[in-house]
């Protein structure tokens, strides 16, 4: 066997190994549930896609028990100061209503900023480089950053996603963790209330990658084999 054949064999084995690993980490059927948590706290991460996306996501987050979902990480796109202000308002309102000392101590939520994967009206040609920069930021926050500190914290227990584009790069970063066998958050995708008959681009891209895929109109279940409908969430 010549060196050419050896390299073909090695490459084929590598591809097979990678494919097997990816198959293994793809979400299973939705009946799977994480066993009951021994901890009383759950580390929450939420992607805020600006504008209407942010409003919807923060409405969902506002319904949660903040003493249970702590600490909280909000991921926003670069330059989205409005979302940043809305987060501060929600956190302040919740802290004012809370009896817990934890809420009054501060340091219970943080905001991460990620460059947009694709700006509004950006041409498809120039998208790949900006998407890569965005992905690298996500990989830094989701995969690398935790190993720079001791004791080593992890990114989150659960990551809640909604469009637009940048949420795909976050999801890919989580997949890198899964691929490497590192701790990875569960991913929940909630499609916007505005989506009645057709999934958004992010929805189409993410629906087979996330652990739970939730839509707010039953008509969408026809398109998404793994979707769930629980009425209007917002």
């Amino acid at each position: 066997m010549g060196p050419f054949h050896v390299s073909v064999c090695v490459t084929a084995l590598l591809i097979l190994a990678v494919c097997t690993r990816i198959y293994y980490i793809l979400p299973r059927s939705k009946s799977f549930r994480r066993p009951s948590k021994s901890s009383k706290h759950c580390k929450l991460a939420v992607f805020l896609g600006s504008g209407g996306h942010t409003s919807e996501m923060l409405a969902l987050v506002s319904s949660l028990d903040f003493n249970r979902y702590v600490p909280r990480t909000y991921i926003i796109s670069e330059g989205d100061t409005l979302s940043e202000r809305k987060v501060a308002m929600l956190e302040a309102a919740k802290a004012a209503n809370s009896e817990s000392d934890m809420a009054k101590n501060g340091e219970i939520y943080s905001i991460l900023t990620i460059p947009r994967a694709r700006k509004v009206h950006q041409s498809l040609l120039t998208t790949p480089p900006t998407a890569i920069v965005s992905l690298l930021h996500c990989v830094y926050y989701v995969t690398i950053k935790q190993y720079q500190q001791t004791p080593c914290p992890y990114f989150a227990d659960v990551l809640v996603l909604n469009g637009p584009g940048t949420c795909l790069t976050l999801c890919l970063a989580v997949y890198l963790n899964k691929f490497l066998g590192l701790s990875a958050p569960k991913m929940l995708y909630v499609e916007s209330f505005a989506r009645v008959k057709t999934l958004s681009v992010s929805g189409k891209l993410l629906h087979s990658l996330v652990d739970r895929f939730i839509v707010q109109w039953p008509q969408l279940l026809k398109h998404s084999g793994r979707g769930e409908f629980h009425g209007w969430l917002i």
Partner: peptide, 15 residues
């Protein structure tokens, strides 16, 4: 009705 999402996430996270 915030309880829908609250229940969904509480259930998913084993609470």
């Amino acid at each position: 009705d915030g309880s829908k999402f609250q229940n969904l996430l509480d259930e998913e996270m084993g609470f």
